[in-house]
C-alpha cells in the first residue's frame, strides 16, 4: 500500500472534518508537525480539539490555527507562550483541559495500546483529581485517567522509509511516538524519506504500522528560546 504522498494537503485529503479530535506531537516548537498544521489551516477545518502538550506561539505551531479560530478545545499541560491563546481562553471562546504532562503522554500511549483507563498518583489531592475515580493500591491512593483515542494523529519525525518506519532526532522525539500511536489514522511529516533497507531495523523508534500517510518537506524548525554560553 502506498503511504508516501506529494504534499501535506494531499496526505490529509479525506481525513479532516469539523469537530474532530487531533493528537499532535511536539514539545514547545520542537518536533512539531509544522507542514501538516499549515495544511489544516488552509483546509479551514473547524471546532477542532487538540491533544497537544503546548499550543505553539502566536504565529507558529498550533498558534496559527488559533488565529483563524479553528480550535475549540486544547488538552495541554502548558500554554504559557501564546498571547492569542490566553485572549481566547479568558473571553470564553476556547476550552482548555489541563493535563499533567506525564498524564497526557500516558493517556496517548494508553489509547494507542488499547488501554481505556489507568491509575496514577499524579494529581492526587489537587484540582486535577476532582470528579475522577479514586482507588487504593497497597495503601496508596491513585486516580483514574482515560486513554486518548484521537480521530487523527499528526506527527513529525526526522527520517522514515517509505513504509513509515521512523527515526526521530534528539529531543524532537518527545510526544511524537505516543501521539502517533493514539490516532485512528496517523499522518507523519519527515525531513527525508528513504528506501526500505536504508534504516537499520534495530534503530527504528516508531514502526511503520503506526504510520498511514507520509510526506517529506522543508521545515523551518524555529527555536523558541535561543540560550548560549559565553565563548571559551
Amino acid at each position: 500500500m502506498k503511504k508516501v504522498y506529494g504534499s501535506a494537503a494531499e496526505a490529509l485529503d479525506g481525513l479532516l472534518f469539523d469537530g474532530m479530535q487531533i493528537a499532535a506531537g511536539g514539545f514547545g516548537l520542537c518536533g512539531i508537525p509544522e507542514l501538516l498544521l499549515d495544511a489544516i489551516k488552509e483546509a479551514g477545518t473547524k471546532d477542532l480539539t487538540f491533544a497537544s502538550n503546548n499550543a505553539g506561539v502566536d504565529d507558529f505551531g498550533i498558534g496559527i490555527l488559533l488565529q483563524t479560530k479553528q480550535v475549540k478545545k486544547m488538552i495541554s499541560s502548558y500554554v504559557g507562550e501564546n498571547a492569542e491563546f490566553m485572549r481566547q481562553y479568558l473571553s470564553g471562546e476556547l476550552e482548555l483541559e489541563f493535563n499533567p504532562q506525564g498524564t497526557l503522554a500516558e493517556r496517548m500511549r494508553a489509547g494507542g495500546a488499547g488501554i481505556p483507563g489507568f491509575y496514577t498518583k499524579t494529581g492526587v489531592g489537587t484540582l486535577i483529581a476532582e470528579g475522577k475515580e479514586h482507588k487504593e493500591f497497597k495503601g496508596e491512593t491513585y486516580i483514574m485517567e482515560e486513554g486518548i483515542f484521537a480521530d487523527l494523529s499528526i506527527v513529525k519525525a526526522w527520517k522514515a522509509d517509505t513504509t513509515g518506519n521512523a527515526i526521530f532526532r534528539k529531543t524532537a522525539r518527545n510526544f511524537n511516538p505516543p501521539a502517533a500511536m493514539c490516532g485512528k489514522v496517523c499522518v507523519m511529516e519527515v525531513e527525508e524519506i528513504v528506501e526500505p533497507g536504508e534504516l537499520d531495523p534495530d534503530h527504528i523508534h516508531l514502526p511503520g504500522i503506526y504510520v498511514h500517510r507520509l510526506i517529506q518537506g522543508e521545515h523551518e524548525k524555529r527555536i523558541e528560546k535561543v540560550t548560549t554560553r559565553p565563548a571559551a
Binding site: F27, G28, L29, C30, G31, N53, E81, Q101, G102, T103, L104, A105, E106, M108, R109, W158, F168, R169, K170, T171, A172, R173, N174, F175, N176, P177, P178, H205, K221, R222, I223, E224, K225, V226, T227, T228
Partner: peptide, 26 residues
Amino acid sequence: PDLINAGKQTITELPKTAYFDSAMSF
C-alpha cells in the same frame, strides 16, 4: 532546534546522553 530542555532553551548533549519519548520520560 532539535535539542532543547524542558524550559525550551537550547542545550547540548554529553557522551552519556540518551533520548526517549515523553511517555517513557514520565
